[in-house]
């Protein structure tokens, strides 16, 4: 992949990657950093890659980054909860966060269900591709997706029925 093709990747795919990350994390800064890391990885290997299929490569890289970020946050959160259980205002200040109902519902899904749901709805991957990315078989992908959609419907219905404060 040439430098021009790499820059074309930035133009074409960075918005999609950012939206994917934003749906996944709900946080603008974290999503931007994750996308930047993904493109840094792409640039480091751009000589060995071809332009065709590079978006799948970027999604897989971004997925690994997001999973790593999520796991790191979970470890940090658990540590803080254990060390400072009474302190509640430990959340970092975020410049941009999604606060819509869909994002709230997504945050309540198990991680694997949220990942598969985003891969399916935002990126349109088929089951084989999602199985390759997540490392589970296609039948299990179907099971997680079924449960994720069922749970999303319950959460969004409850959110819509919630009285306005």
């Amino acid at each position: 992949m040439t430098t021009c093709e790499y820059n074309d990747c930035v133009k074409q795919f960075s918005d999609d990657l950012y939206r994917f990350a934003l749906r996944y994390t709900g946080d603008g800064d974290t999503s931007r950093d994750a996308v930047q890391d993904a493109f840094v990885t792409l640039w480091e290997q751009h000589d060995e890659l071809k332009f065709k299929g590079v978006k799948g490569y970027l999604i897989r890289v971004l997925y690994r980054i997001l999973v790593s970020i999520h796991r790191h946050e979970m470890v940090c959160r658990n540590a803080r909860d254990n060390l400072m259980p009474k302190q509640e205002n430990y959340e970092q200040h975020h410049t941009f966060e999604l606060h819509d109902a869909m994002q709230k519902a997504l945050k309540q899904l198990p991680e694997i269900q949220r990942q598969l749901l985003l891969l399916k709805d935002l990126e349109g991957y088929d089951y084989g591709e999602m199985a390759a990315i997540t490392g589970i078989n296609e039948q299990q992908v179907g099971v997680y997706l079924f449960r994720a959609r069922k749970r999303m419907r319950e959460l969004l219905t409850a959110e819509n029925l919630k009285p306005v404060p």
């Binding site: 960075s14 950012y18 749906r23 931007r32 996308v35 930047q36 869909m102 709805d121 935002l122 999303m152």
Partner: peptide
């Protein structure tokens, strides 16, 4: 119920680009 992408764009997109020597 389908997940929709947020209507946002990647900030500092140009910072990701590399200089090109044509």
């Amino acid at each position: 119920l389908k997940i929709t992408p947020p209507l946002v764009t990647m900030p500092d997109k140009k910072a990701l680009m590399q200089p090109v020597v044509s």
